[in-house]
C-alpha cells in the first residue's frame, strides 16, 4: 500500500514538474570572440574601429596639423553607410569609433548627428529656463576640422557548402574647410562559414 502511495506521489510530482527546462545562460567576457552565424557582429565592429582609428592616428596628417596649427585637430564622425548584404547596425560601429577617438587623447572629438541636435535643443532651452550665470553660451561650439566618413560593403561567394563573405570597410578623413582627403584606409574581414554537410 505504502509502495502504491509512494509511486502515485512520485508520478504526481513528475507530472507537475513537467519536463520543460529554462534556457541555459553562460556569461562571457564582452571582448570574447563568438561567431554563431558568420555574419557581421560586435567583434567585427570593435576590431575594425580599433584598427581604423589606430591607422588614422598614425597618419602623417596628424603631425602636420599639430605642427601647422599648434593644437590638436577637432574631428567629427559623419555617416558610415551600409552597402553590404547584411543589416549592420552602423550606430554601434560609429560608437566604437567615437570611443577609440576619445580614448586616444590625440584628437579633440565633437558630437555630431542626433546627439548634437539634442544638445543644441537643451542649450536653447537653457536660454529661457536656466540662470544667466549657468546657461551654456550660444554660438560657442567647437567647430570640427575634419569629418570621418565610411562605407561598409560585402561580397559573398558560396560553393560546396562553404560560404565566404568578404567585408570591406573603407574610411576617410576629409578636411571641412578645403574638402581635402587627408587619410584613407581599408579594412577587410573575410569569413568562411561551412554549412552542415548533407549526411546521406
Amino acid at each position: 500500500m505504502k509502495l502504491r502511495i509512494l509511486l502515485l506521489m512520485t508520478s504526481v510530482v513528475l507530472l507537475l514538474g513537467g519536463c520543460a527546462t529554462g534556457p541555459t545562460v553562460t556569461r562571457t567576457a564582452s571582448d570574447e570572440v563568438i561567431d554563431l552565424s558568420g555574419r557581421w557582429n560586435d567583434t567585427d565592429s570593435r576590431l575594425t574601429a580599433e584598427t581604423m582609428v589606430s591607422s588614422m592616428l598614425s597618419g602623417g596628417w596628424l603631425e602636420r596639423f599639430i605642427s601647422d596649427e599648434g593644437r590638436e585637430p577637432v574631428v567629427i564622425v559623419g555617416s558610415i553607410r551600409n552597402r553590404s548584404s547584411e543589416h549592420i547596425d552602423a550606430e554601434t560601429f560609429i560608437k566604437d569609433i567615437e570611443r577609440e577617438l576619445v580614448n586616444s587623447g590625440r584628437v579633440i572629438f565633437v558630437a555630431g548627428g542626433e546627439a548634437r541636435e539634442e544638445i543644441r535643443d537643451e542649450r536653447d532651452d537653457q536660454q529661457s529656463n536656466a540662470t544667466q550665470a549657468t546657461a551654456a553660451a550660444l554660438a560657442a561650439e567647437t567647430g570640427a576640422d575634419f569629418m570621418m566618413q565610411g562605407v561598409i560593403t560585402s561580397q559573398t561567394d558560396a560553393i560546396e557548402g562553404k560560404r565566404a563573405t568578404l567585408y570591406k570597410v573603407d574610411m576617410e578623413l576629409i578636411g571641412l574647410e578645403n574638402n581635402q582627403k587627408v587619410w584613407i584606409d581599408t579594412k577587410e574581414i573575410k569569413k568562411l562559414v561551412e554549412q552542415k554537410k548533407a549526411n546521406w
Partner: peptide, 26 residues
C-alpha cells in the same frame, strides 16, 4: 531596402549550383 535587394542577387548566384551539388553528393 538596398540590403534586401543585394541579398536577392546573392541568392540568385547561389541558385546556380545549389541542386547540382546536392544531386552530385547524393
Amino acid at each position: 531596402a538596398f540590403v534586401e535587394i543585394r541579398r536577392v542577387q546573392i541568392k540568385l548566384n547561389l541558385l546556380e549550383d545549389k541542386y547540382k551539388e546536392l544531386v552530385e553528393e547524393y
